[in-house]
């Protein structure tokens, strides 16, 4: 098997973690999805080389692994931004104006939902109901949840993050 360039860039340590994850699960019934979850937790997304490793080690055809990855919305083959922004588009958030928030974010960052900024700092995703319906509209940025979002609040948060991203290089 050819070792992809990405794998070299990823480095030995992460590659090692992937092997460990596969090893820990591979004899359990129905383990494919938990394995992919854990790998994505480590790598941030599921690059082709990792899918190939899963396929080889768990003796599941690559096409099947890939069909699982593409079926489930939570699995991503594309890397996300340093600040991964999720806008909840559950019904409760929607009737309280989630659409306006998405539009505003797209305008502020100059990208469409589903994309990552060219500098890799921000990505916008429309996510399914995260269950904080009582406090909508809700936006998540990495692990932080922002509630009752309004236009001025979105702007303030994003502006400060842009500053941080630039400041931090």
């Amino acid at each position: 098997m050819l070792v992809s360039v990405q794998q070299i860039e990823i480095g030995q340590e992460q590659s090692q973690r992937v092997e460990e994850i596969i090893e820990a699960y591979k004899h359990k019934p129905g383990a494919l999805i938990p394995v992919l979850h854990e790998i994505q937790n480590v790598l941030g997304h599921l690059p082709m080389w990792a899918q190939q490793r899963v396929s080889d080690a768990m003796k599941i055809p690559l096409s099947e692994v890939n069909s699982i990855v593409s079926f489930y919305a939570l699995f991503s083959e594309k890397p996300k931004g340093k600040y991964s922004i999720g806008v909840c588009k559950g019904t409760a958030c929607y009737v309280r104006g989630a659409d306006k928030i998405i539009e505003q974010l797209q305008e502020l960052l100059g990208i469409e939902a589903g994309d990552t900024t060219p500098d890799g700092n921000f990505s916008i995703e429309v996510v399914r109901c995260i269950g904080a319906c009582g406090l909508g509209p809700v936006v998540t940025i990495n692990d932080t949840v922002y509630t009752r979002m309004k236009a001025d609040k979105v702007k303030a948060v994003i502006t400060s993050l842009i500053k941080q991203a630039e400041g931090g290089g």
């Binding site: 559950g90 409760a92 929607y94 399914r128 109901c129 319906c133």
Partner: peptide, 12 residues
């Protein structure tokens, strides 16, 4: 798998 947007009792 409480997927219905707007329902969050199972989570709770």
């Amino acid at each position: 798998d409480e997927g219905d947007p707007g329902a969050f009792m199972d989570r709770s």
